[in-house]
Simulated assay, not measured.
Amino acid sequence: MKNTQLWKSFVPVAVNLLLGIPAIVPIFLVWYVLSNGPLADLGWTSRDPNEDDGMLLWLVILVPVVACFGGLWALVNIWLRRKMFDAPTPYPYWLVCVTATLAPFFVGIGIG
């Protein structure tokens, strides 16, 4: 019985690690918009000198990409949580899912 429960707990981690690979694109887009917009206005980052198109173009690109990925990510994780577990507490599950999804992005930053 314990092996079955242990196996079930690794499935969401593996799925979210795989979802983290395409998540690199929306996470990078969010960082790019923030670093050239509000964070640059605060003086925390410097603007890209070649960025002269304005932020509206980036928001037109950013919003659909993040909305599509966020919707897909939420639906997959809600389905996995209902399918794999009877009634777990929600906080550790979602924390592990978010961490596993962000892991490929931070590994890519560490390598690059």
Rank of each mutant, 00 (worst) to 15 (best):
Leu102Arg: 05
Pro92Cys: 05
Leu72Thr: 12
Ile78Cys: 00
Val63Ser: 05
Cys68Pro: 00
Asn77Tyr: 11
Leu17Gln: 09
Thr4Leu: 11
Leu6Arg: 06
Asn50Phe: 15
Phe106Ile: 15
Ile24Asp: 04
Val30Cys: 09
Thr45Met: 12
Ala23Ile: 01
Val65Arg: 02
Val63Pro: 01
Arg47Ser: 08
Asn36Pro: 12
Ala67His: 02
Ser9Arg: 11
Ser9Phe: 08
Lys2Asn: 08
Ile27Thr: 12
Trp94Asp: 09
Ser9His: 02
Trp31Ala: 15
Val11Thr: 06
Asn16Met: 05
Tyr91Lys: 09
Thr89Lys: 13
Asn50Trp: 14
Pro49Asp: 11
Thr99Val: 14
Leu29Ala: 11
Ser46Gly: 08
Asn3Pro: 05
Ile61Leu: 13
Leu29Thr: 01
Leu17Cys: 09
Leu56Trp: 12
Tyr93Met: 07
Leu6Lys: 09
Val66Asp: 01
Val33Lys: 01
Val66Gly: 02
Gly37Tyr: 13
Pro26Gly: 06
Gly71His: 04
Ala67Arg: 02
Asp41Leu: 12
Leu80Gln: 09
Ala67Pro: 00
Ser46Asp: 11
Phe10Ser: 10
Leu18His: 02
Pro104Ile: 13
Asn36Arg: 07
Val11Tyr: 04
Gly54Trp: 09
Leu80Pro: 05
Val96Asn: 12
Leu17Glu: 01
Leu29Glu: 10
